[in-house]
Design a binder for these strands. Structure first.
Lengths: 195, 195
DNA sequence: ACGTTAACCGGACCATAGTCCGGTTGTCCA
DNA sequence: TGGACAACCGGACTATGGTCCGGTTAACGT
């Protein structure tokens, strides 16, 4: 559970056929289970059973429950990463930092809006998971660069990401905040701080 | 676990003597256990056993593990609340909002520095616990008032508190951030946003 | 003093995340 | 094609937070 989400890496230990097949099965079963019965039905036992696989296999493949959720999100997340790296401005390169930062946070909130429960699961299933996940590192690096002209870019990047923490957003949603309100507040934050 | 930390309320259901005694025992045992063996030794079973009490009793008294941790912190937390309500400025009343906000966040970081593990436990032991705890509500109300001149005071108050989230601070500490650096970053945030 | 009652007690029980290891099997090389 | 070995498999096992309920007892009125 650290840093090897590279796809078909042909280098050192090629993945065995049964392993690959089981990973696929688990992912499929988990996705269906989630789609059908929501996040609370997504227990590791249930996923393993639905995939026709032992529970140990799930943990070996995905490390922990958070890792499983992260794997489920992987594809959507990559879309956003691609847009950030090489999409059109202001999300992609070419716009001033402040615009890119607000565009990113906007886009991230859209992403959250579509997958809040899963993201939350992937960030809270194990303590401190959020800050270890590869995706978080990516967003952090991105924002750190955009904050280059501030006193402590890396720290500020963390603080900006804190404003879209899935647990926080969940709590605010439950308190009645709608998405436009969340977007406006976060945008205000970024505008005041970046560049 | 909602809003009855008023002390000797003599009104409706006076607490039975055995209940009060057991609460005390549990708190004492938990504090000692934590002091001696750290937070990872603070399992509910261990606390119950050390207190000479059944596990059910612990949960009845404190709701869940987060509640137990919160109770352990209660006193220290009240100190800070008192200072905010009626201490000398800039923490207490009488200073301009921006100064009060930065003073509060500074003081809160001091509090965190002394009790990071317990605070984290009280905020992460159950999902969303942080935003339900009475103390969080108190800080939030305080900051909301200080943010009165901003577009969305309540939201901004949440975002400021997110910058001192125990889980975030833990992660940053593990990444090597020292306390002065954290203080400076948070102060920068508040300065840019309040008033 | 004593009976009534509601609150309390505790430990057996449940759900679920995560670990472990003996047996199995895919992969590679000769 | 066959053998050796590393990787993988799965389910029994552990740890721990949280629930439940039959028995107990403190508090209060008479």
């Amino acid at each position: 559970m650290s840093d090897e989400p590279l796809e078909i890496a042909s280098r050192p230990p090629r993945e065995r056929a049964d392993a690959a097949r089981n990973r696929e099965r688990i992912l499929t079963a988990a996705a269906e289970l989630f789609a059908r019965s929501g996040v609370e039905a997504l227990t590791v036992d249930a996923v393993a059973q639905a995939a026709g696989v032992g529970k140990g296999t799930v943990f070996r493949r995905f490390g922990d429950k958070a890792g499983l959720a992260a794997a489920l999100l992987d594809e959507r997340e990559r879309d956003l990463q691609r847009s950030v790296l090489s999409g059109p401005p202001p999300l992609g390169p070419g716009a001033p930092p402040r615009d890119r930062a607000t565009a990113f946070l906007d886009a991230y909130l859209d992403y959250l809006a579509g997958h809040l429960e899963l993201v939350r699961l992937s960030e809270t299933a194990s303590p401190g998971a959020r800050y270890r996940i590869g995706a978080y590192r990516f967003w952090h690096r991105h924002l750190t660069i955009l904050c280059a002209d501030t006193p402590d870019p890396a720290h500020l990047a963390h603080l900006l990401l804190a404003s879209v923490d899935a647990a926080l957003v969940t709590a605010l949603r439950e308190e009645g905040y709608d998405w436009p309100r969340l977007r406006a507040g976060v945008r205000h934050l970024a505008t005041a701080l970046v560049s």
